[in-house]
Design a protein around this nucleic acid. Structure first.
Length: 472
RNA sequence: CGGGUGAUAGCGCAGCUUGGUAGCGCGCCUCGUUCGGGACGAGGAGGUCGGGAGUUCAAAUCUCCCUCACCCGACCA
C-alpha cells in the first residue's frame, strides 16, 4: 500500500521530522508565551519515568532532595561576577508584585547556586557537616532567543544538585561520580543512549565554574546534544556566599562546591537518538507504555475483546506497563500506526484467527519483526522481549554513533566529518584560533578526552583529544 | 537582537495581483457497509481570515502599526 508518509522522513528534513513526531505522537506543543512548552500526558509520563530512575540514582549517590524558592533576590546573582555575567542576558526579572513596584527586583531562578549557597552557608558550621549533598527537582527560566521544544525552552524542568565539600579533591571526585554513576549510567542503561563524557573547554564552561564535565550524545542526524553537565565550582560560590567550616584543628576553611543538572532536554535526546521514519521509539525501561494489547477485530459475542482485556490484565499483573486498545470501531491499521508513532516497544495483536489457535501476534517496534506467541507463554516472552529490545536499541545506537565518529588530523577534515557526525581531533591542532575556525563552520568542541577515553583533569592536558561536532 | 519568509477551520493549504456571499484536503461528529497495516459512501459540525488602526458604499484582499511563528547569523541544560 503506497500511502503518503505519515511523518516527514528523517532524511528529507530532520527538523521537520522532529516537529512531526512531537505533533503526531502528542508529545508537546508551544505554550502561549514564546519559548514556553506544554508537555502532553504521554510525554510527561515518560518524563516521570526519567525522574523516578534519576531520583533513585541521585539518592544512591548520597544526595538528599530539598526545595528552594523560585524567586531569587537580584543581588544574589551579582555576588559572583562570572555567574551574573553569564546569566544576565537570559534572566526573567520580576519588577512588580502586589500591584506595586518592588524595591528590589526579583529574578526567576535560572539555576539555584546562589540561593542554595546562601542556605548552605547557614547550615554548614563544622567539617562534620560535610559533605552536604543536596538536589532539587524544579522548573527554571532562561529567556531563550531561539526556542525549540524540549531542546531549548525558556522554562524547563530539571534536577539540580548542589553540594559542598571539604576539599577540592572531594569536590572533583563527586562531580565525576555524578557524571558516571548517575548521568552516564542512566543514559546508557535506561535511555539506551551511549554518551561521550569529557571535560568542557573554558569557553564552554558553566558561568562561575572552574571545570565543567558533560555527557554528549549523538542524534540520528549526526548532531551532538549535551545531555547533562556536572560542575566543579571551585571556591567561587563559597567565597561569594561565605560557605565555610571549622576543620579538625579549629581552623576556618572555605568549602569547595559542585553543581550538576539534567533536564527535559533529555526528552529531545530520547526522541532524536532513537526515533525513525515510523515515529518515536522508546526503550522499554523508560517507556511509560511498554506493550500495547490491541484488539484486531472482535467477534459477534465480544469474546475476542474480552480476551484482549484479560491478556492486558495478566501482563499488568506480571509487572508490564501495558495499555489495552480495544477501540475496534477505529480501523486496525490506523491504531497500529498510532502506537508505532508513539514508539511503544511491543505490540500484541489479538484477533479471532490468533485466538482460534491459542496464540497472539507479537510485533517489535524497533525491528518491525512479527511472530506468533502461544498464549500460555506470553508473559514470559514479553518480559524477555522487552529486555532484548532494550539491549538491541543500545547496541544499534552505539553502532550508529561509532560509525559516524571519525578520527581526523586537520581542521578541514574535522569540519567535513562534522557534516555527518563527530570528529576526534588532537586538541593541540585547535590552538591558535582553531576553535574559532571550527566555529565559522558551526562546529564546536563538545568535550575533551584523553586517548583512552578518560577525562583530563586540567585545561591543557597533554595529548587531549577534542570531540567536535555540530550541536543542538 | 539583525536579515529573509509567513500568519485564512484542530492540522496542511488555496483565495489576495484585479476589493463584492470564505473554500479545498486531512482530521472531527452521525448513519450504513467494512475491518489481520492509515477503509468506503452519504450526511453534518466547525472560521471575529493573527490583533489594532486607516482607505472605501464595500477589505481575507489595499496602507500603516503591533504580535506571533519558521529559516539564516551572535548565547545555552
Amino acid at each position: 500500500m503506497a500511502k503518503a508518509p505519515i511523518i516527514t522522513p528523517q532524511g528529507e528534513d530532520f527538523p521537520r521530522w522532529y516537529q512531526d513526531v512531537l505533533n503526531k505522537a502528542q508529545l508537546a506543543e508551544n505554550g502561549p508565551v514564546r519559548g514556553t512548552m506544554v508537555i502532553r500526558p504521554y510525554a510527561y509520563a515518560i518524563w516521570e519515568r526519567m525522574v523516578s530512575e534519576m531520583d533513585a540514582r541521585i539518592k544512591a549517590a548520597g544526595a538528599q532532595n530539598a526545595y528552594f524558592p523560585l524567586f531569587i533576590p537580584e543581588n544574589y546573582l551579582q555576588r559572583e561576577a562570572e555567574h551574573v555575567e553569564g546569566f544576565s542576558p537570559e534572566l526573567a526579572v520580576v519588577t512588580h508584585g502586589g500591584g506595586k513596584e518592588l524595591e528590589e527586583p526579583v529574578v526567576v531562578r535560572p539555576t539555584s547556586e546562589t540561593v542554595i549557597g546562601e542556605y548552605m552557608s547557614k547550615w554548614i558550621q563544622s567539617y562534620r557537616d560535610l559533605p552536604l549533598l543536596l538536589n532539587q527537582w524544579a522548573n527554571v527560566v532562561r529567556w531563550e532567543l531561539r526556542p525549540r521544544l524540549f531542546l531549548r525552552t525558556s522554562e524547563f524542568l530539571w534536577q539540580e544538585g548542589h553540594c559542598a565539600h571539604a576539599s577540592q579533591a572531594d569536590a572533583a571526585a563527586y562531580a565525576d561520580r555524578i557524571l558516571r554513576e548517575v548521568y552516564e549510567d542512566f543514559m546508557v542503561n535506561e535511555l539506551a543512549i551511549p554518551v561521550f563524557t569529557g571535560r568542557k573547554i573554558p569557553e564552554e564552561r558553566f558561568a562561575g565554574a572552574i571545570n565543567t564535565l558533560s555527557c554528549e550524545a549523538m542524534m540520528r542526524d549526526g548532531k551532538a546534544l549535551q545531555m547533562g553537565t556536572s560542575h566543579e565550582l571551585g571556591q567561587n560560590f563559597a567565597r561569594a556566599f561565605d560557605i565555610g567550616y571549622q576543620d579538625e584543628n579549629g581552623e576556618r576553611q572555605l568549602c569547595w562546591t559542585t553543581s550538576w543538572g539534567t533536564s527535559t532536554r533529555m526528552m529531545g535526546g530520547l526522541i532524536m537518538a532513537h526515533g525513525d521514519d515510523r515515529g518515536l521509539l522508546v526503550p522499554p525501561r523508560i517507556a511509560a507504555v511498554q506493550a500495547v494489547v490491541i484488539l484486531v477485530k472482535d467477534d459477534d459475542a465480544g469474546a475476542v475483546g474480552d480476551s484482549t482485556r484479560r491478556i492486558g490484565a495478566e501482563l499488568a499483573a506480571a509487572g508490564v506497563r501495558v495499555k489495552v486498545d480495544d477501540a475496534a470501531s477505529t480501523p486496525f491499521g490506523r491504531r497500529a500506526t498510532d502506537w508505532e508513532l508513539k514508539g511503544v516497544p511491543v505490540r500484541i495483536e489479538v484477533g479471532p484467527r490468533d485466538l482460534a489457535e491459542n496464540l497472539v501476534t507479537v510485533v517489535r517496534r524497533d525491528t518491525g519483526e512479527k511472530f506468533p506467541v502461544a498464549l500460555n507463554e506470553l508473559t514470559v516472552k514479553v518480559a524477555g522481549l522487552l529486555e532484548e529490545i532494550q539491549s538491541s536499541m543500545l547496541s544499534e545506537a552505539t553502532a550508529r554513533r561509532d560509525a559516524a565518529t571519525v578520527t581526523v588530523n586537520s581542521i578541514g577534515e574535522a569540519v567535513e566529518a562534522a557534516a555527518t557526525g563527530f570528529a576526534r581531533i588532537p586538541f593541540d591542532l585547535l590552538a591558535d584560533g582553531g576553535v574559532d575556525e571550527l566555529g565559522r563552520s558551526a562546529v564546536t568542541v563538545r568535550c575533551l578526552q584523553l586517548e583512552d577515553g578518560s577525562t583530563p583533569v586540567e585545561d591543557h592536558a597533554p595529548g587531549a583529544i577534542a570531540l567536535v561536532a555540530r550541536s543542538y
